[in-house]
């Protein structure tokens, strides 16, 4: 479903070029739960950013449902909005928007009317146990609640792929378990593909595929 073919990525630091990924290949099927682990600085986030089309590889290409993804800016924005949901280590919620508005935002950007987007967002947040937090602002929510809202925002457009970059990195054990359970539940109920970068091997063990990023390769 989602193929990464021979991608390489390097960063320029002054006159020095640091290669982070080299001829990396990965084939992900629909409904896969993929964990990517590795040391700090091994390139996990870089790989996720490339898979999420937030960055461009130096070489190689990405294919979705056997079609190469166009590199044009507009096509990338539209693809990302429709097919990929992001969950980051930091929640990145909009401070001026309530929980339900934050979740509704990607749906509205995708073209859904605001009232319909709000209705979908309410349903999603209620399913995540946040029915009493719908109209709270991010600063009125706990860390775990903020991250659940961020997950709901990633899911609102029913993306085929959820990319989560250390989604539990800032949470305590209880909250972390709660978030992972939500992600696993979504995978089993909606067959959404989950690609997750983490340091936590216990979380990685709950996924059906586990890759270790080492020496610029998986």
């Amino acid at each position: 479903m989602y193929k990464i073919k021979n991608i390489s990525k390097s960063y320029q630091t002054g006159e020095k070029s640091i290669k982070v990924l080299e001829n990396l290949c990965l084939d992900i099927e629909k409904g896969d739960m993929v964990a990517i682990t590795g040391k700090s600085g091994s390139g996990k986030s870089t790989l996720l950013h490339l898979m999420g089309l937030l960055d461009n590889p130096d070489t190689g290409e990405l294919e979705f449902e056997d079609k190469p993804i166009s590199a044009s800016m507009k096509a990338v924005e539209s693809f990302r909005n429709k097919h990929i949901g992001f969950v980051f280590q930091f929640h990145y919620l909009m401070a001026d928007f309530t929980a339900v508005e934050n979740v509704a935002l990607p749906a509205a950007i995708a073209g859904l009317s605001w009232s319909k987007a709000i209705a979908s967002a309410k349903e999603l947040l209620c399913n995540m146990g946040l029915s009493d937090r719908l109209h709270h602002y991010p600063n009125q929510l706990s860390g775990g609640e903020q991250q659940r809202v961020a997950i709901a925002r990633a899911l609102i457009n029913k993306p085929a792929i959820i990319i989560a970059d250390e989604p539990t990195g800032n949470l305590d054990k209880a909250c972390s378990d709660e978030i992972i359970n939500i992600l696993l539940g979504l995978n089993s109920s909606h067959q959404q593909t989950l690609i997750l970068a983490t340091h936590d091997l216990e979380i990685a063990s709950q996924m059906n595929k586990h890759y270790v990023l080492q020496d610029k390769k998986l």
Binding site: M73, N81, Y92, M94, R153
Partner: peptide, 13 residues
């Protein structure tokens, strides 16, 4: 800039 970054990430041009 963070809000701008996330808006771009969720598809706003």
């Amino acid at each position: 800039r963070k809000e701008i970054g996330i808006l771009k990430t969720i598809g706003l041009s």
